[in-house]
Nucleic acid binder design. Structure first.
Lengths: 193, 193, 193, 193
DNA sequence: AATGAATGAGGTTTCATTCAT
DNA sequence: GATGAATGAAACCTCATTCAT
């Protein structure tokens, strides 16, 4: 098995799935872009679904690790939360195809939705929950906030901004400014003091 | 023709699209559930895509109207924002199939994604933006928050909660509590005072 | 039964069958053009095939009669043959839709081909055969020519010219000149004396 | 790919299209007869129309070439014309399916009719025109005859005989005799001297 | 391991025909 | 008789997957 070839197929699939959508994407096009024969893709991945799942599983690992490292480098929970939002959006900016997959296409892969949930995605979301809990313990954050709900709020907000950025072809949205605003709202709320 | 029949097909499509996903859904199953012949569905809708678009267009209208009415019944912008979040989640609770469609499946319908965006959906998001602006003018809300970004934050947060609720078959999540927490975060932030 | 309505349907069918071809023609379009409901066409004609057959049968009658009359008005077999060719092409010029049907579309109607042959069409061809025989008896024409073969030669030649005229949208072909040339060849041959 | 397989599909299509007609022919039946799967036919031909066009294009080439060779072997224009008629009818006798396609079914393929006309078919007709012109120059044939019209007369006559032969299942028609009669009429006309 | 031709199940859509009103 | 909404069979074509080379 050639691990480089596996990687090439994976990268090609990201491009094609992102561009055409999971269901409209053709295995032949993935193979063509990877510079291999169709049959070869089936040597490295069980089937189309498995290819999708693998993208998620394997591309998510470095992302989660990088995020974890970035967060660890921050002193306070407040800074950690700020970091999460900024880094996530910088990921989106750097690799919009991958971002689009994680946001939109992933949800269509039936095997993913039915029963898969709980792998890397939960791990990623729990980074947010951990930050909240840490802040609550440290007395930075309100203890009345539920980590389970909060992680969804943060991810949802960030993901919506990201989706909007990814979908709108003209990438004239300022993700840095958006990150700041998200952080401000999450930390201070919108109520005028 | 027969508007009742059209409605039956639409409702059947919502069920089937929600259960099987847009691409896995079969027109034959939609027809079966609607109690009509396959050909009949094509008397009322141009094709599968049109059926999906129509669901969005026609089911969104009463939702938007109801939301608008509920918001109008509130005095302050703060109450209006609270209402938006609660009512949205109550919609999700009342009709999870429809919610699932709007959240997940809709994005797969190619015609929807390419060029359609901006109809009812934008209208819905702009309800949030209007609330923010109103609050800013009234002096309730911080004027430094961008309406364009804020509406995405709110929708993203609420939608993520909703998606999670819809996907998890066991509906033991308390949406009321989630609504309260979302509102609290949005209004006050999580920073301890 | 309203015979006028039957006629309207027949005429509409000629137009539609000629324009779209028998297989691509839709009964709904025929009905629309006739100004009746789809179901009505089935009150006057058993089915699509029957409609085609009826066109042939019923439109052919006046044509054959007119042709017979014209021929009868001529004194010699030579003049009669000349008349046949000219009148046929003038029919084509007057009603290209009908001509197109008889030339091209008719052959596609399976019931027509399988077993039908021998109705009006044979009657029409036999007008030619009769002219030849008459001329042979009168001593005008060579007696070595087979009527069965000759009628096909004449019809084939005339029909090919007609088809070419009908297909080429730009109707700049001179059918009169073509008629003269056909007659000349048939009567004298092309060999230089 | 595999040119032999392409040929098998082409031959199968000729049989099926000739027997059932273009519109009634099923791709599945074509595949079955070719001994391949349905999908395979689409590896070699874009679609049903393309298959039909390809039959015409590719089967016509050897026919035209053979005809050209046969004609070239004759000394006088008179002999060449005789040869054309005889060889054409011998083709029909040898391969009635192919003949039927060229005569009847071909005209139904929409792509063929709309804009295609003028490729091989014109080439074939022009063989006749060339013979006439050659004979006129050599002083064998009357110079008053238009080549454009004459080629249609000859083809029409021959084609009508061929069609009649092909349609009538009982092949008891003597094509050799028919060829002689056609030639006699074309060369000498029917007028008794 | 790699290829890519071959497979064939399956879905959308069309449209002639029917039949309740 | 007239209507036209409803029917549902049937066919083209796609494309994930396989397998002989």
């Amino acid at each position: 098995m050639n691990p480089g070839k596996r990687e090439k197929i994976l990268k090609a699939a990201i491009k094609v799935f992102a561009r055409d959508g999971f269901y409209n994407a053709k295995m032949e096009e993935v193979a063509r872009r990877a510079g291999v024969a169709v049959g070869t893709t089936y040597l490295y991945f069980e089937n189309k679904d498995d290819l999708m799942i693998s993208i998620f599983e394997e591309e998510m690992v470095p992302i989660i690790n990088a995020m974890r490292r970035e967060i660890a480098g921050q002193a306070t929970a407040t800074e950690k939360l700020t970091t999460f939002v900024r880094v996530h959006l910088s990921f989106v900016e750097k690799d919009p195809d991958m971002a689009h997959l994680l946001e939109v296409e992933m949800r269509q892969c039936s095997k993913f939705i039915h029963g898969y949930h709980g792998g890397r995605f939960k791990e990623y979301l729990d980074l947010i929950a951990a930050i909240l809990v840490e802040g609550q313990i440290a007395g930075e954050f309100e203890s009345s906030i539920s980590p389970t709900i909060f992680k969804q709020i943060v991810f949802g907000a960030v993901d919506q901004i990201a989706t909007n950025y990814t979908v709108s072809r003209a990438r004239r949205i300022n993700l840095n400014q958006a990150a700041d605003q998200i952080v401000q709202v999450l930390l201070q709320g919108i109520t005028k003091k």
